[in-house]
Design a protein around this nucleic acid. Sequence first.
DNA 1: AATTTATGTCAGTCATGTTGACATATCTTG
DNA 2: CAAGATATGTCAACATGACTGACATAAATT
Lengths: 182, 182
Amino acid sequence: MTDINFSRGAAHPDSHGNAGTSPAPREMRWDIIELLFFAYRDFVGDADHELEAFGFGRAHHRVMHFVYRYPGLKVADLLDVLRITKQSLGRVLKQLLDEGYIIQKTGNNDRRQRLLYATPKGEALVAKLAGLQTDRITRALRDINPDGVAAIGQFLRAMIDRDDPDKVLEAIFGTGSKKPRE
Amino acid sequence: MTDINFSRGAAHPDSHGNAGTSPAPREMRWDIIELLFFAYRDFVGDADHELEAFGFGRAHHRVMHFVYRYPGLKVADLLDVLRITKQSLGRVLKQLLDEGYIIQKTGNNDRRQRLLYATPKGEALVAKLAGLQTDRITRALRDINPDGVAAIGQFLRAMIDRDDPDKVLEAIFGTGSKKPRE
DNA sequence: AATTTATGTCAGTCATGTTGACATATCTTG
DNA sequence: CAAGATATGTCAACATGACTGACATAAATT
């Protein structure tokens, strides 16, 4: 067994040798910063593992997820949500179309648009991955009372940038530009 | 302005056409799943933006962060925490050493070990990035009472895998196998 | 002395992001 | 209607940060 070079209390002391010109000691939320790192790592890890079996990566998951959740999403909307370039999106989207996880329909009003929909095959994949993540979330919320759960939702919402919200965010909050009213 | 193809209520209805043989409709935590996605995206986005100025990426940030926070971390520990290969770590670590953000010291007991420490330059970088993230967290927690904040911590902790915890996780929780004591 | 461990490094590959340029179909506007 | 703007797709080149596999060195352990 390797020796333990830092024990329970060995994290870097916050107030250092702050002698003289330093720009004032800040109170950092190291706890939340690190918890978010580990929590998110394990949260997406659930899906990552399963995706390997399909020969897909995280990028495919994100596309499938939002297409399933917001049927009729346009390519442009997806680009806003994922914040990647159309070339990046194009690659994974093409695979998902070719392999029958997503279908495109031409827009009714605007025939240039390609509206995206999950096929049953795609829905099954999203459901499987969301099931794993839901299991983890349900487990994590098990011993937390309704007020606590509400606080968690409020916190996560407040962590999100509200300037220039994309269509999905507008759906999650209640149609942009208004101030968040919790 | 492009037309809105899904409005506030247009998210995929959970109970589909569940006629017959489907494997039972699950209650999915779409809310938390999506909030985690957006919250984490914007949370790391703060640092990403700043890192560009240094010519560094997220990988550098993660290394710097944990080296600063847990001084004397061994290379092997870092590999456990980040869950990447030593080849991947080697690349970014080499840059951080070459550019004077991190220094190595030979282990006292075991002279094969390279114990890692942040230099003042490294500490400044970590502090800058943690400051941005702390700002966001503080803002998000502003209107949440102490019980709510406790619930958020409990939730994030419970989201993390506790089997095979690395040394940093042992420090965050209270040395493996025991239950977390808030 | 032999083996294991901790670390470093070379070489090649893959996934996913980026820019820039350009093509096509379709809608909008003067 | 002709001209321009918009939505999408695609080609090519490149960067980052993962990966595997192989191998080298120094130091500890057996």
